[in-house]
């Protein structure tokens, strides 16, 4: 397997694909649906916010390994953060996965396993779908988010 593929499908990603964390629905709180019309990936992100802090976050849906692992890792990394912190993290994450492949990677902790996506421009939307949907859930706009 090529080095790029090994970067993309790291063991951590494969593990989150096989056993996604926080893969459930939340009864209370806000939710939003995300959809990638190009490939048919669908996701619902649920969260409860208390005093501007994300108390709980979960997701359900179907998609490729990258979109599922990204959603799973996202829920782990935004739980307990303020909405503003989560928003800032999304921006840094988005920068990381769209940066040129030789650019240095920001320290984003666990999320750094997804840096390999930048070598696969057509897969960037898979990695960012959950985050776009999270933002919509925070705003609780009720609109279905589309990557197109």
């Amino acid at each position: 397997m090529s080095a790029e593929l090994e970067d993309l499908y790291q063991e951590v990603i494969l593990d989150h694909n096989r056993r996604p964390r926080n893969f459930r629905a939340l009864e209370a709180g806000q939710k939003a649906e995300g959809f990638n019309p190009l490939c048919g990936d669908r996701i619902t992100v649920y969260l409860t916010v208390d005093n501007g802090v994300i108390n709980d976050v979960a997701f359900q849906g179907s998609g490729c390994a990258i979109s599922k692992a990204s959603a799973s890792l996202m829920t782990e990394s935004v739980k307990g953060k303020t909405v503003a912190e989560a928003q800032a993290l999304f921006e840094r994450f988005q920068q990381m996965i769209t940066a040129p492949s030789d650019a240095p990677v920001d320290n984003l902790g666990k999320l750094m396993v997804l840096a390999g996506v930048r070598q696969f421009p057509v897969r960037v939307k898979c990695a960012s779908l959950a985050w776009h949907t999270l933002r919509a859930a925070v705003e609780a706009s009720g609109e279905v988010v589309s990557t197109e």
Binding site: M1, L5, L8, Y9, L38, C39, C64, A65, F120, R123
Partner: peptide, 22 residues
Amino acid sequence: DIHPHDIGTILDRDGIAIRAGH
């Protein structure tokens, strides 16, 4: 249970063009 998009990406690195999706 491998998603077709992941198959598509892996095949592409072998120079193989297929379609994945609906």
